[in-house]
Simulated scan of single mutants.
Amino acid sequence: MNRSDKVNEIFKALTKFRENVKQPVKDKKNPFFKSDYVTLEGVQKSIDEALKDTGLSYSQIVSDSEKGTSVSTIITHESGQFIETGKLTLPPTKNDAQGNGSAITYARRYQLSGAFGISSDIDDDGDKASRPAKSNYGNTRAKKQYSNNAVDAKKKLFDGFVVLISKKLNSDVQTVKSQIVEQAEKKPEWSNGDSNVKAMIMLNIAEAMKKQVSTNK
Rank of each mutant, 00 (worst) to 15 (best):
N30V: 03
R3Q: 15
D53K: 12
Y37T: 10
K87D: 15
S72C: 13
F32C: 07
F17K: 08
V71F: 04
S59A: 14
G101W: 01
F11H: 03
S72Y: 03
I47N: 08
Y110R: 13
L112S: 02
L90G: 06
T89R: 09
E66P: 06
I61N: 14
T15R: 11
R108M: 03
I104S: 11
S35T: 11
A50W: 02
D48S: 07
T39W: 01
I74C: 11
N100A: 07
F11P: 02
A97D: 12
S65F: 07
Y58T: 13
F82L: 10
H77G: 00
N100P: 06
Y37E: 04
K29S: 15
D64I: 15
D48T: 05
D36Y: 03
L112A: 08
E41P: 14
S79H: 02
S57E: 01
P24H: 04
A13H: 03
E78F: 01
A50E: 01
D27F: 07
P24F: 03
K12Q: 02
V21F: 07
I75Y: 09
F11L: 12
S57Y: 00
L90K: 01
E66M: 05
R18A: 11
G101H: 04
L112G: 09
Q60R: 11
Q98K: 11
T76V: 05
L14F: 14
G42P: 02
T76S: 08
V25D: 14
D27Y: 13
S65T: 12
L14K: 09
K16E: 07
V21N: 02
T15G: 14
K26C: 00
I10F: 00
Q111W: 00
S72T: 15
H77R: 06
D5T: 05
T15I: 12
D5L: 04
D27W: 07
A50Q: 09
P92R: 01
I104W: 04
K87T: 14
N20K: 06
K28L: 10
K87R: 13
Y37N: 09
I47G: 03
R109S: 12
L56C: 10
L56Y: 05
D5G: 12
H77E: 00
L40H: 05
N95E: 04
S79Y: 01
S35N: 12
A97Y: 08
Q81H: 02
I61Q: 13
T39E: 14
L90S: 07
S4M: 05
T15Q: 14
E84F: 02
Q60A: 13
N2S: 15
F11D: 14
N95Y: 06
Q44M: 15
K94I: 05
E84R: 11
I47L: 02
A50I: 00
N20C: 05
A107R: 01
I74G: 07
K6W: 00
H77T: 04
S59C: 11
T76G: 07
T54S: 05
E78M: 00
K16G: 08
Q81A: 01
S70R: 12
T15F: 03
V25G: 11
D27C: 12
V43E: 08
S57N: 15
D27R: 15
S65H: 04
R108D: 02
F17V: 03
Q98L: 07
P91R: 03
Q23F: 00
T85R: 10
H77P: 04
D53V: 02
D36G: 03
F32A: 13
I83H: 03
A97W: 04
I83D: 09
G42W: 00
